[in-house]
Structures are given as C-alpha cells and as structure tokens.
Design a protein around this nucleic acid. Structure first.
Lengths: 116, 116
DNA sequence: TGCACCTATATGTAAAACACACATGAGATT
DNA sequence: AATCTCATGTGTGTTTTACATATAGGTGCA
C-alpha cells in the first residue's frame, strides 16, 4: 500500500492530466511537447510524465476524442499536432462535472475537519 | 492506461479514505467495520474496499499513527478498536493542507474551463 | 568536427493504488 | 442445521503513475 515511513500526502486527483489536456486542446490545437510544458500551471503538478502523456494522447485518439496530424514544413523535429473533436469536448464537460463533485467532497471533508 | 471505450470519469482523490479514517478516529475511537460504514458519506464513494481498509489500518499502526487493542467483554465477534495518536493527528493536518491545495487546483481548472 | 544541448516523440518496465474474490469465525435468527 | 449479520482478514489481478531509456532533427560553440 504505502511503504513504511513514507506518508507523504499529496491528495492528487486521479488522471488529472487528462482533463487538463482536453482543456488546453479546446483552447487551441497543440503538439505533445507543447502540452507537456503547459500542463504544470493548470494541474499544480511540478511536472507531468512525458512517456505517459504521449500514451494518453494516443489513447484519446484511438477513441476519437482527439485527432492528430504530422506538422509539415516547420523547422526542428517533426511535430504531431492534436486537435479536439466534439466527442472530446463532451468528455471534457464530463470531467468538469466530476471535478465539481470531487471539490464538493473535499469541502465536506474540510468543513468536518474544521469542526463545522 | 484506460481500456478502450471506457472513459468513465470520476476525478477521485488518491487515497482519500486515508484522511477520512484519520478524521473519524479523531472524533472517536472505532473499529474497522464501524469505520467502513462511516466512510461513504465522508468520501462520497459508494463503498470502500474492506480488504484494503484493514490493510491501511494496520499500515497506519505500523507507523505509529494509530494504536489498536482487542475489545474485550462485548458480545459478538471480537473487535479491534483503533485510536488516533498525536503523530496520526499531525498526519491528518497534513492531509487537510494537501486537500486544500488540491481543491484550489480544481478551482483553477474550473475557472479556466468556464472561461474566466 | 565533435559534442553538448534543446526540441520532439516514443517504448519498456517497475511501483503504487485500487478492485474483486474468497476465507474464517462468533453469535443471532429461522 | 442452515442462513444471516457482524467482524477481521488474505490473495491476486487491474489500473494508474513513476522512472528509465531510445531515437532523431537541429543549434551553438570550442
């Protein structure tokens, strides 16, 4: 469960980088590396694992939540640019609703913690 | 990562049952089964896995965050009653702080989602 | 030219967290 | 004696996250 002596608590939301990706892509199309750098201020995480980030993007694409194309004609390494689909937008809405519920549970907890 | 077609989102807080346990034990000593029934309204989860609950309790005890004793003299199956230690109380405070940060990140996300 | 560095995309695998299934036993009810 | 609830646990598989490494184009510079 937890290794002894390591009770560092972070209280993170599971798969929070996923809605964060969708929100960034709703604002504008972007490629993976760009998203990687834009995520931390949105999630509050110091950094997001790049390996898993690319895996999530491809999983999202498999299910038609985003589409991608290789960006041609630009200098530097090839970039795969992602764009949000309408299905992806719906999923983002679901995430927002789930996050509101989650925040309410945290508030319930904190109210009780503070003795109210 | 996620099995295809299953993008059910719940946005749960990781290990949320742990601070919930600590909070319940701050209010009064209790045994596992009792805690199991008291958790759902506090965490918002429909139910908590009992197997993991007992494991968490014993892990907490190993690290001196709770203490336990077998309840004697009562009818019914033997009960192991847990009590919070001062170290456990400190950990609960850390959890509360982490949960406040987490809630703030969610708010940041939702504000941006709603376009503010 | 050689090498360090940044951008960019990816795979492999281990660890942590969570879910599902089952075992054991006391006591009450039918 | 069979079944139900209370109560405590173990075993094990799945999902999620973390850490490590691979590949490759392009830039700066000694």
């Amino acid at each position: 469960m937890v290794r002894p002596g390591h009770w560092g608590v972070r209280a993170r939301v599971e798969r929070f980088s996923e809605p964060a990706l969708l929100l960034l892509l709703r604002e504008r199309p972007a490629h993976g590396y760009e998203l990687l750098e834009a995520l931390p201020p949105l999630t509050g995480e110091a950094r997001v694992d790049m390996g898993n980030l690319y895996r999530v993007l491809r999983a999202l694409e498999e299910d038609g939540l985003v589409t991608s194309r290789w960006e041609a004609g630009e200098p530097g390494p090839a970039k795969r640019t992602y764009e949000l689909t309408t299905a992806g937008r719906r999923l983002l809405d679901e995430w927002a609703a789930a996050l509101r519920r989650s925040r309410d549970h945290i508030d319930t907890f904190l109210d009780r913690f503070e003795g109210r």
